[in-house]
Simulated assay, not measured.
Amino acid sequence: MSTSKRDALTAAVELLGALPMPVGTAPAPMKLEERKAIAVQIGDVQPATDGLVGSLAESVANVRNHEHPSWEDLYCMNLTSYMGERMAPVLKRLLDAETENARLRARVAEVEAGSPWERAVAGLNALADADIAFWIEPDGHISGPFGDEHIEWDQKTSRWVLTRDDDPCRPCGCPKRFDRHAEGCPQAVTA
């Protein structure tokens, strides 16, 4: 750097102080390939401790705020060298955070794409969209418009099941054909 450019830079730093480096827009999620490449580059290193992060933040403030001489700034060079030598643990901590963020983003997408409640609502809406009327009975089962199909709670399997009037009796397993009002069926509804 020529002497005049160095003097202009020194004058600007003296007037304005050290300015932050522009970093562009908000970061996009890091791709898996990028995370793998960084992991290879930094090697087997432990993530930065809170103490190291605090020390680096203090060094950044010292570089920005100290009295910058008009000659070689050995103080800044020493601090930036110190920070550079300690970047591998910081990058590991950042890489771990990026990996966790990717995991959490995937989990959020999974939950948003279909929680069990959303799937249940989607099932009921599918009946409505198909113009199939249904009733929710006082005992909690759902019956179709003709009363020949039912969504019942099967106590043996602890599952909701679709039953039809010509199916065996599911709630109790008796050999009779399913009829919610059949005499002799232990689960018969008496209304």
Rank of each mutant, 00 (worst) to 15 (best):
A133E: 07
A133Y: 09
L162C: 03
W135T: 13
I142T: 05
K176M: 10
P138T: 10
L162R: 11
S158F: 06
F178H: 01
W135Y: 04
F178L: 05
G147M: 03
D154M: 06
E152G: 01
H150Y: 13
I142C: 03
W135K: 14
D167R: 06
E152K: 05
A133S: 09
C172T: 07
G147D: 09
F134L: 04
R177K: 15
G173D: 01
W160A: 06
C169W: 06
E149N: 15
Q155D: 15
Q155F: 09
R170I: 13
C172N: 04
D154P: 02
S143C: 05
D139S: 06
T157R: 15
E137S: 05
D148Y: 06
R159S: 12
R177E: 15
I151W: 06
E137F: 02
H141T: 12
H141M: 13
E152Q: 03
P145D: 13
F178S: 01
C169S: 01
A133I: 05
V161G: 01
P138H: 09
E152P: 01
G140C: 05
L162N: 05
S143N: 01
E152I: 08
E137P: 03
I136W: 02
T163K: 01
I151Y: 11
A133R: 08
C174H: 10
R177T: 15
I151A: 04
G173Q: 10
H150C: 01
C172M: 11
D165Y: 13
A133N: 03
W135A: 15
P145R: 12
K176R: 14
I151M: 11
P168R: 09
R177G: 06
G144W: 00
D139K: 08
D167G: 04
I142M: 00
G147P: 06
P175H: 03
C174Q: 11
D154W: 05
T157M: 15
D148T: 02
W160C: 04
W160R: 08
D148N: 14
D166C: 12
E149P: 04
I136V: 15
D139V: 04
D167K: 03
A133P: 02
T157S: 15
G144S: 07
D139F: 04
T163S: 00
G147Y: 02
D148S: 08
W153L: 03
F146E: 14
P168T: 05
T163D: 00
I151P: 02
H150S: 07
F146N: 15
W153N: 00
V161K: 07
G173M: 07
R159V: 11
F134Y: 14
L162G: 07
K176F: 07
G144K: 03
I142R: 04
D154V: 06
C174T: 11
D167A: 10
F146Q: 12
S158A: 11
G144M: 03
I142Y: 00
P138Q: 11
K156M: 15
G173C: 10
I136P: 01
R164E: 08
S158V: 09
L162I: 13
C174I: 06
C169T: 00
S158M: 04
W135H: 13
P175L: 09
W153R: 00
R164I: 07
W135G: 14
E137N: 08
G147S: 13
C169E: 03
E152C: 03
C174M: 12
P138V: 10
E152H: 01
D165H: 10
G147Q: 02
R170W: 14
T157C: 13
H150W: 02
K176W: 07
R170S: 08
Q155I: 13
P145L: 09
Q155W: 05
F146Y: 12
